[in-house]
Every structure is written in structure tokens, then in C-alpha cells.
């Protein structure tokens, strides 16, 4: 079902259930949304994706996070205003205490004129630069590995392997958490043949054709098991897979 709504004075059509954030982004707005990822459940943690919304029939404007706010017919959305910027800047200031050097935050700080730090930085976080968005935890759990936990609560919350261990026993080294992390604060180190992440070191599997590492052996094994394939199916990197397909398509024998 489609609904009509107004984003910054322009009428747009969206699918019911879509978030205001997605709709605004489709409409070309640049909205900071550090804890949001289409593939995983929304938790609305960073509190940066603020917008102002007014429902039909209501005479007040509500300031809200947009990633967890669904569109509805007749909704009037404002994606930028002094009020939005003010509160967004304050929340950014709070996040900067945790990740003062994270490029994504620095860039936002420049946009929002956040300059001198007014608050003391957080120095005792177990994972420096982590902004506690739990994307790593959510991604890992969406993939079915559940190797990471959100631990504790309040300002003492952290993310990492369970049971206070350095190592995540259920991790397969797929690297998805690393990819998802907005501040790139998860230490992951790849060599030609190994990958170290969350206290573990995994053997990397090389592409049969070009020799580039594809992923860890442990990851490949779980993928194969899930797809009910023999572990030793063809080990090809994405690039080579695509090449093979195009080669086949192009081959005259076809």
C-alpha cells in the first residue's frame, strides 16, 4: 500500500511501513543515521537522525528520530531546522566523547559547527571509539552467529564477546561486524592467509582462480553447511564468479 506525505514541502509517495528516514533519503536528503542498517532490526540508538513531524489533524510538531518512525498518510516531515540541528549537535557532542577521532563523527562535527569539546572524553571504554550502536551485535545475530553480546547497561554498556572473555567462541570471522561498524573501531587484521578478529585468528580461504582471500575457512564452512553443500564446493571470489559467468555467456559454444 502506498501513502502520500510531505517531505520538506514536497509531496512524495512512499510504501506504508517504510521509515521516514528511508523516505527522506530517497528524496535525496542527507541525514546522519549512524545506528541504522536496512538488514537488521532498528534500535534507534544514536539519536542523530532527528526530524520534525506533524501528523494530520494534530497541531503540534514532534521532534523524533526518523529511523524508527513509520510513514503515514498526510504526515508532514521537516528534515532540517534550527531545532533539529541544535539537538543533533548536542547528541553528536555526546558521541564525540566516546569516539573523538572517528572520521564519520569529525565530518558531522564540521557540518554542525561543533568545535571545542565541552565535555570530558570517555577514557575507560573497553573498546575505544565504540559508540555503542550495537550494529555489530545486530548484524552478527542476523547472520545467525550470535557471537557478540551487548553487555551491561547505561553508560557502562559495552559490546563484545560474552562471559568477559577476550575471545568470541561463536565467531567465524566473517568480518560483517567490521564492515557494519560506523566508527571502524573493531580491530580486524588480515594477512595474506589469516584474519584476526575478536581475539581469534582464522585461516583465510583463497580463491581457486585468482588466489585472493575470499573469507575465513570457518565462515565458508558454515555457509556451506547452511546451504547444505559439501564444504569443498568451488571456492571462488565474487570477482572471479562474475568473470566466469560473463565468460560463459560470451563463449561461442553456448
Amino acid at each position: 500500500m502506498n501513502v502520500e506525505l510531505i517531505v520538506d514541502d514536497v509531496q512524495v509517495t512512499a510504501e506504508a511501513g517504510e521509515s521516514v528516514l528511508d523516505v527522506a533519503r530517497h528524496a535525496g536528503r542527507d541525514i546522519p543515521a549512524l545506528c541504522h542498517h536496512e538488514a537488521v532490526p532498528t534500535i534507534a540508538s544514536c539519536r542523530l537522525c532527528l526530524m520534525e513531524v506533524r501528523r494530520p489533524g494534530r497541531d503540534w510538531v514532534q521532534l523524533t528520530t526518523s529511523c524508527d518512525y513509520p510513514v503515514s498518510a498526510g504526515l508532514v516531515v521537516v528534515t532540517d531546522s534550527a531545532r533539529i540541528r541544535k539537538h543533533r549537535a548536542m547528541n553528536l557532542e555526546l558521541l564525540l566523547r566516546r569516539a573523538p577521532d572517528a572520521p564519520v563523527l569529525r565530518q558531522l562535527a564540521a557540518q554542525l559547527d561543533v568545535t571545542e569539546p565541552r565535555f570530558a572524553p570517555v577514557t575507560d571504554a573497553p573498546l575505544p571509539d565504540c559508540i555503542l550502536c550495537e550494529l555489530c551485535v545486530r548484524v552478527c545475530s542476523a547472520l545467525g552467529y550470535n557471537a557478540l553480546a551487548a553487555i551491561g547497561r547505561g553508560a557502562h554498556k559495552s559490546v563484545g564477546p560474552p562471559f568477559g572473555q577476550m575471545e568470541a567462541p561463536d565467531c567465524v570471522g566473517c568480518g560483517s561486524c567490521y564492515e557494519a561498524c560506523p566508527t571502524a573501531c573493531i580491530p580486524m587484521e588480515d594477512t595474506a592467509t589469516t584474519r584476526a578478529i575478536w581475539g581469534r585468528t582464522f585461516e583465510l580461504l583463497a580463491c581457486e582462480r585468482c588466489g585472493r582471500p575470499i573469507t575465513t575457512e570457518a565462515h565458508a564452512a558454515t555457509m556451506a553447511a547452511k546451504a547444505d553443500l559439501p564444504v569443498k564446493s568451488d571456492h571462488l571470489c565474487d570477482v572471479c564468479k562474475r568473470r566466469i559467468v560473463s565468460e560463459r555467456l560470451a563463449s561461442p559454444g553456448r
Binding site: V137, S141, N146, A147, I151, R153, P162, F163, D170
Partner: peptide
């Protein structure tokens, strides 16, 4: 103890990481 939590997790069919997350919450 970790053992107790692991066993509770297995018994309820929950990921150990979730059980640990709940415990520390």
C-alpha cells in the same frame, strides 16, 4: 558461573551471548 549460564542458554535454546547480555543488564 559461565557454565551455569551456558547450560541455561542451551536449555532454553537461546544464544549464550543473549543470556550473558540479559544477565549483565
Amino acid at each position: 558461573t559461565e557454565t551455569a549460564l551456558q547450560e541455561a542458554a542451551a536449555y532454553l535454546g537461546l544464544p549464550p551471548a543473549q543470556v550473558y547480555g540479559v544477565t549483565t543488564f
